[in-house]
Design a protein around this nucleic acid. Structure first.
Lengths: 122, 122
DNA sequence: TTCTTGACTTGGACTAGGTCCATCGTAGGA
DNA sequence: TCCTACGATGGACCTAGTCCAAGTCAAGAA
C-alpha cells in the first residue's frame, strides 16, 4: 500500500459514487499533486480485480468506478443529465431468463441499467 | 436513400447481428469500396435516431449496432469471447424496481446484460 | 439544356479515453 | 552501504468516435 493507492481508495469512498477515471485522477491530484494518470488507471484496475470496486459503462463513453461492490445492486441513470443512483430491485434478475433463452450459456450475472428522467430533469 | 445508406442497412440485416461501426464499415467497403467511415457513422446515427437500430455497449469498448429493434429484447454476452445473443426474459423488467428505489425518477426503460460463458468457452 | 440549390459524402484533422513502456525512485534485505 | 524489486512516472501511442471544409450529385427552376 503506497500513498498513491491510498489516495485513490480514499477518493472512491461513499455511497452513490460513480466517478470516471479522469474524475478520480483530478480528485487524487488535489491531495497528491504528483500522482500520474497511469497510476490511477493501474490502481483502479487492481481494485476492480480485487472485487473492491465495480466498473460500469452506462453511456459508452468513459467507464465509471463504483466502490459499492459488496452489496449487489443495479443502476438507475438519468437519460438527460447522466446522474447515477444505486438501486436494489426485488428478486433474482437471473430467474426471469428461461432455460430456452440461454442458448447453452452458463449465466452467472445480470447487469441492469434502468433509464429515465431524474426529478431535476423531468 | 443513397447507395451508401442502402449498403449500411443491408450489412446490418439478420438476427443476432451485433456489429461494431468498424465492422459495418469493413463489410460496407466490400460492397461499395469508396464508402467513408464518417458516412457509416452518420448513417448508423440516423438509423438509431429513427429507431431502426439499437446501440449497445456491452464491454465499454466499441459500441455495437443491433438491427433487431422492433421486438424488445435483452442481451446475453459471453464473458470470455464476447459473443452476443438476443434473449427474451419473461415479465416486465421495470416491475421489480419498487417505488422506494426510484428516487423520484420517471423510469421508462431497463437494459439488461446477462453475462456468463457460452458453450464453446465453458 | 443549363443553372441553382441543398442534401449527402468524403477524407483528413482532431479529441477523449485508455494503454504501453522505458525509466526513475524508494523501501527493504543482504 | 549496496542491491533488488516493485511501484510510480510521464510521454508516446492506440482506438473509437466526432467535426468540418470541400467535393459530388440529383432534382427542380429557368
Amino acid at each position: 500500500m503506497t500513498s498513491q493507492r491510498r489516495v485513490v481508495a480514499e477518493v472512491l469512498a461513499g455511497d452513490h459514487v460513480h466517478l470516471t477515471a479522469d474524475e478520480v485522477h483530478a480528485r487524487a491530484v488535489a491531495r497528491l499533486p504528483e500522482i500520474a494518470r497511469a497510476t490511477v488507471y493501474n490502481t483502479l484496475g487492481e481494485l476492480v480485480a480485487l472485487g473492491e470496486v465495480v466498473e460500469l459503462s452506462t453511456d459508452g463513453r468513459a467507464k465509471r468506478y463504483d466502490p459499492n461492490a459488496h452489496r449487489p445492486h443495479q443502476h438507475l441513470v438519468c437519460s438527460d443529465c447522466g446522474i447515477i443512483r444505486d438501486v436494489h430491485p426485488t428478486g433474482d434478475p437471473l430467474a426471469v431468463l428461461p432455460p430456452g433463452e440461454r442458448f447453452g450459456f452458463s449465466v452467472s450475472k445480470a447487469d441492469v441499467t434502468y433509464r429515465g428522467l431524474c426529478p431535476a430533469c423531468s
